[in-house]
């Protein structure tokens, strides 16, 4: 994926299971010491609405903002990014994107999120 030999890291979200518990948001806020109204990762909510007699749409999905640095200091120490460590729903994975992509098997709803880690062009 990357154009040189540098590896690209990302966060895979198995958002079928995101409960919207806000732990990623607050763990990040505390890690980055962010003021009111600012987030390094923020939940989006879709629904709830009724699809048919037996089915409901109610989906949460966290989105990383420009403030996210993938917890580079923590990762350098061997720790997990704070949002991934604290995710109550076990729906976040951190790693090298090629490895994470292997988990995407079409059996669950997943998104692989990557922040800008180096200069583009």
């Amino acid at each position: 994926m990357s154009q040189n030999n540098e590896k690209t890291y990302g966060i895979l979200i198995n958002y079928e299971y995101c409960t919207g518990c806000h732990s990623c948001e607050i763990a990040c806020k505390k890690e980055l010491n962010l003021p009111e109204g600012q987030f390094g990762i923020k939940l989006t909510e879709i629904g709830p609405w009724q699809i048919n007699e037996d089915k409901w749409e109610w989906t949460y999905m966290p989105v990383m903002t420009n403030l996210c640095d993938m917890c580079s200091d923590r990762v350098a120490e061997g720790k997990l990014p704070s949002c991934v460590q604290h995710c109550q729903a076990w729906c976040m994975y951190y790693g090298e994107v090629d490895e994470l992509a292997k988990k995407i098997d079409g059996k669950s709803r997943m998104a692989l999120l990557v922040t800008k880690q180096r200069d583009g062009n």
Partner: peptide
């Protein structure tokens, strides 16, 4: 959260965070 704790595996709710 403490990832080595088997009870909650490092996961925490926002009240502890």
């Amino acid at each position: 959260g403490d990832p080595l704790d088997p009870h909650s595996n490092g996961k925490l709710c926002i009240r502890c965070l």
